[in-house]
């Protein structure tokens, strides 16, 4: 699969851009946290598209955001 570029993303209708980004993020997140991959992907998709594109190219920044989201989700679930 070739990398998702900003121009590819811009060519898609706005509504589909999040889905396109999600489709690329989901497998990467699933490798780290299979059980909550859908939820964590949804949480990350609230980040701006340009930053999400950068995260797809930089595993470190993606890992950092994923771990941040997982920590918040786990704290929330512990409270419930």
């Amino acid at each position: 699969q070739e990398p998702l570029t900003a121009s590819m993303l811009a060519a898609a209708p706005l509504k589909e851009q999040k889905q396109l980004l999600g489709e690329r993020l989901y497998p990467l997140i699933q490798m780290l946290h299979p059980v909550v991959a859908g939820k964590i992907t949804g949480m990350l998709l609230e980040i701006d598209n340009s930053e999400l594109l950068h995260m797809l190219e930089s595993p470190e920044s993606l890992h950092a955001k994923v771990e941040e989201a997982v920590a918040v989700l786990q704290a929330h679930q512990a409270k419930e």
């Binding site: 889905q19 999600g22 489709e23 993020l25 989901y26 859908g38 939820k39 992907t41 949804g42 949480m43 998709l45 609230e46 980040i47 701006d48 955001k65 941040e68 989201a69 920590a71 918040v72 989700l73 929330h76």
Partner: peptide, 20 residues
């Protein structure tokens, strides 16, 4: 903009996953 994880964000469902 700092990233504030939102636990109420909708769950993402990839189109390549079988439905249900």
């Amino acid at each position: 903009k700092p990233f504030v994880p939102n636990v109420h964000a909708a769950e993402f469902v990839p189109s390549f996953l079988p439905k249900g």
